[in-house]
Amino acid sequence: MGASILIVHPDRKTQRAVQRILGVTGYRIDIADDLDQAIRLLAHAQPVLIVVDGASVLGPQAGPFLAAAKAAGTEACMTLLGGPLGDQVPKLLGLGAVTNLLVHPMPVLAEELTITAHKLIRGDLFGLEKYLLWGTELHALTLTRASQRADQVARLAEQVRSLGQSARVASMAMLVTDELLSNAVHNAPVDAAGEHYRKDLPRDRELELDAQHQVHMRWGCDARYLAIEVTDAWGTLDRDTILGALAKTDVRDSGGGAGMGVALAYRSCDHLVFNLAPGQRTQVIAMIDVRYPPAERVPASSYNIFVERTP
């Protein structure tokens, strides 16, 4: 049997909705009503992606199910949650059996699901273009000195406002960008022993950033999302650090290093994507939904963690 996509959900309507969205990939779609049925299917299938109901996967059968997924070579598991993430994120920490972890509150957006499936199927993870409409103008800059961070963040806010976006959107963009840039400059670099040698340096200290230390940022807005992408050339941010930060219910507990910045960024955007190429580069894409006023938006964020396959 060839590669497929497996949907595990007890609700027929959801099964059909997800099947319609993912059917366009051309992959065979297998459907299971529960984890037991999914485990039986996994004995004969190699799904590239599993989309699973959050309530099911947080139950007692999660362990055997994830072990079966790993044995089948599944690289990604998308968990669909029925409510806000806050209470459920800690439980999701245990879902370590598959490489990529994708968490979405319901209703999942067709566009996000499709983009995610294509990223995984094509093995092409990096780049914010995948999340923006064709033709969206992208702005790019490179930090060559640490002190440029504050000016670039302020400039971004001005540019976002000049595009007609609200002060609130600009404020969220500033916070997300500042935290992601700060992480990339100060927390990403490691020495030969794996020590993060810049994490405790005062953030107001000037640092010249050579080619290895430079941080690349791009952003664009397509009137649906304001997307901000920050990339470093270290690839040291790992899944456990990310999940640990996201799981904290009080940001102050996140401690030093990348934790607090990741946690604040997560709470200040609608969708956070981590593209990880261990030892090579880390790319974080934050998306702020600019379509709806705050009172009409679901107060929950989704996050995706993708890890590039090693050749």
Binding site: M174, L175, D178, E179, S182, V251
Partner: peptide, 8 residues
Amino acid sequence: TFINSLGV
């Protein structure tokens, strides 16, 4: 107008 994690 702005407060980041270090400001926090």
